[in-house]
Design a protein around this nucleic acid. Structure first.
Lengths: 226, 226
DNA sequence: ACCCTTTGTGAAGAACTTGTAAAATGAAGT
DNA sequence: ACTTCATTTTACAAGTTCTTCACAAAGGGT
């Protein structure tokens, strides 16, 4: 498990405790002390789950949740000190996946986080160490790809692109996202490069290339065909 | 919504209260007062979700959860009066999907139930966070729009306009606001451009185009029709 | 009711975005 | 240095989307 968790909590002690628990459970942990920092970390990292306190300096948890939900459906667990249960309702409306009231047992929070991560894996078609969708299988440890149970050989770039798209099945990935994911943060290069690779990838996928949809002026999206 | 919910709770008053809330929310409700009855009802009905109290006569909640999980992965929410948090951990281990401690706000329980049911839907369908009003649904991560549950395809500009209007349901959006939102701050161009796109968008929305009202000399407004 | 302003409409071409093919460049191994 | 393969660039094609324009229709103020 190398899932990176982002803990957004302004109180140092609480954050440290949580961090310890998650590190011990084998996750990697990123931290943010206020709303602005949180969004920055969110944008610059590939995260698996977010733990979000509501009472924060600069931007409150609601706002952050709303902003994140515009571009991602990453699991979010919200924390609150208040016992006011209307908060919980608002939290769910804004798209939080779970809601834990303080004081909480860190082990419970950990259990809830694990459950969400597990759900997500299942939803994305990750079974053990492969990822499957629409007749395409990616075996992650061996870095091989099968289409209709026949292995096809992809270059590094093609593999990375396909993996990223399939990890985010059903979600639009912008060209920028693809570029930063595959080439790194400040890649300067021709705009057509990405198209070339996409074409090569699609050719290799044969019939199944229809899984990768072009979203004009935005990016690409992997969709399971029905 | 015709999802049948099974409420397993021995205290009549609590069960009745819950039942009312769920009935009002449009669900159908089945009841069980003890463990044996619960299993019987479970086996004889096609359920969508189970709410399961732990302290029960005859068979306790743990046992029931374990038994059900042998044959089904129906969403289960466990209830407990105890504040002992180890219970929660055990609950998750046994495969419960959520865990609520008494006393609870019935609305919160309802919200959590809805979330689980919604997740279930998603597994078999479209992904993600969405925005709905008046028969129009925008699935934000997948960037798709449904009118009466049928997907329509919008261009970038049309999508941005609709999203902005629906995000501000009931509020008048000025032409300037629309322009800066969709085209950016210093857009110089023909005044009629916006009308053209609005026309195309309305055409694609069909009957539902009435949701977008023209406010003469000001802008546009999205309104849910009743 | 009138005039003036604002918005809706249809069609055409401009502008943009992506797809495609082929050539140039770069990297790795022999 | 040569071969091979992946990557990037280039130039162009194809298709879509956007913008503009002229005119029609509708709305607002007096």
């Amino acid at each position: 498990m190398i899932d990176p968790i982002l803990i957004i909590e302004d109180e140092d002690i609480l954050r440290e405790i949580l961090k310890d628990y998650f590190l011990n459970a084998g996750y990697s942990v990123l931290e943010a002390k206020d709303g602005e920092e949180a969004l920055k970390v969110f944008q610059e990292n590939e995260l698996s789950l977010i733990i979000l306190d509501i009472m924060l300096p600069k931007l409150d948890g609601w706002t952050i949740c709303r902003r994140i939900r515009k571009t991602s459906n990453i699991p979010i667990i919200m924390l609150t000190a208040r016992t006011d249960e209307d908060d919980t309702l608002l939290g769910f409306e804004l798209g939080a996946d779970d809601y834990v009231t303080k004081p909480y047992n860190p082990l419970v929070l950990l259990a809830r986080a694990k459950r969400l991560l597990h759900q997500r894996e299942q939803k994305n078609g990750v079974v053990g160490d492969y990822l499957e969708s629409g007749g395409i299988k990616i075996y992650i440890p061996s870095r091989t790809v099968q289409v209709n149970n026949e292995e096809i050989s992809l270059t590094h770039t093609e593999y990375e692109m396909l993996l990223y798209l399939m990890e985010n099945k059903g979600i639009v990935i912008t060209r920028e996202q693809l570029i930063t994911k595959v080439w790194g943060y400040e890649h300067i290069g021709d705009d057509r490069t990405i198209n070339s690779h996409m074409r090569n990838l699609r050719n290799k996928l044969g019939d199944h290339s229809t899984c990768i949809k072009t979203i004009v002026r935005t990016g690409y999206k992997f969709e399971e065909i029905r």
